[in-house]
């Protein structure tokens, strides 16, 4: 397999990656025609989770912020959307736009307080505040439905079929991923990585690191909110576990498994984890046991993530080729 990669140069890699993405999108485009209802649901859930995991990677992988409670914003986006629809305060289109903005506003408030703290203290404050939001939602029966959650959320007729939900999700996730990609490749994205690598130096070249981190945190919150809205479209219900801390850890594991220093790593991790859950769920009652052990092994032996590992190997062989070519050129 690696022999194939080693014949490619760096530019060709990029085209190769694009080709794979193109093929995946093409296969996805026709998914409703060949997938059963259950598997279509599953693929849609994976797409939602892909966006959720990628949203975490903006502050985590690119900003170097160990956010311990990303599910807060996923949950807030979902709850806001669900409450708008259930109470009929807003039509679906504005509701779907405002809900992620509410998630972003939460992220702005929590982030504004948290980015003042450094390292682990930052992480634990995100945990404390996230759990605070969870606890309030868990008990505020009149507004959020408390521990029962909100069920039978009304959606317009055109969003009732599995395939229309799937296509909506696919389009929104693709657009969001494209936006995130543009952002991480922008001057902001580049300097955010610089802040991750060396915050002190960034201050000396005139970058306001608190501001940079807060923006990353808020953007992560916004896209997590978008994922939350999509989740509501898919499930037509919300419940407190989706913003409990364990949900955040789950998505952290996805990001780490896939590779947090690659753009598509978190997405890949989401596919792998949900795929494993389904696979082991079918064959055994105690799937967590297998999942837990596999995660331990993968994390222990591929700390840079699966996609990170593949990229590393590809880059290594490419470098060899490039160097070889240069040498050959010089000699000739």
């Amino acid at each position: 397999m690696l022999n194939v990669f080693s014949k490619l140069t760096k530019g060709q890699f990029f085209s190769f990656k694009l080709l794979i993405i193109g093929i995946v999108v093409l296969i996805l485009l026709f998914a409703p025609s060949y997938l059963s209802r259950y598997y279509l649901y599953l693929v849609t859930l994976i797409l939602v989770t892909v966006l959720f995991a990628t949203s975490l990677n903006i502050p985590l992988g690119y900003g170097g912020l160990l956010v311990l409670h990303q599910a807060t914003f996923y949950g807030v986006g979902a709850y806001a959307f669900a409450i708008f629809l259930k109470q009929g305060t807003l039509p679906i289109l504005p509701a779907s736009l405002i809900a992620p903005l509410i998630a972003a506003a939460f992220a702005c408030f929590i982030g504004w307080i948290c980015v003042r703290l450094r390292g682990l203290y930052f992480s634990f404050l995100t945990l404390a505040m996230g759990q605070l939001v969870w606890a309030i939602i868990y008990r505020w029966y009149n507004f959020t439905g408390g521990d029962d959650g909100i069920h039978a959320i009304p959606v317009p007729d055109f969003l009732r079929s599995g395939s229309s939900v799937f296509y909506t999700t696919l389009i929104v996730v693709l657009i969001s991923l494209l936006l995130i990609y543009i952002i991480v490749k922008s001057p902001y994205g580049l300097t955010l990585q610089a802040v991750r690598d060396n915050p002190q130096r960034c201050e000396s070249v005139g970058i306001n690191i608190r501001n940079h981190r807060l923006i990353a945190f808020v953007m992560g919150g916004f896209f997590a909110g978008v994922a939350g809205v999509l989740f509501v479209l898919l499930e037509r219900s919300v419940a407190p576990p989706m913003l409990f801390w364990t949900k955040s850890v789950e998505v952290l594991i996805m990001v780490l498994l896939g590779g947090m220093f690659t753009f598509l790593g978190p997405a890949f991790g989401a596919v792998v984890v949900i795929g494993m859950m389904t696979f082991f769920g079918i064959f055994t009652e105690y799937w967590l046991l297998f999942l837990g052990s596999i995660k331990i092994l993968l994390l222990l032996f591929l700390p840079q993530g699966v996609l990170g590992y593949i990229e590393e190997m590809m880059a290594k062989s490419a470098k060899k080729i490039e160097k070889g070519e240069e040498r050959g050129y010089a000699q000739g």
Partner: peptide, 8 residues
């Protein structure tokens, strides 16, 4: 540094 939409 806050430009988010141009390729760096």
């Amino acid at each position: 540094v806050l430009n988010m939409f141009a390729p760096a």
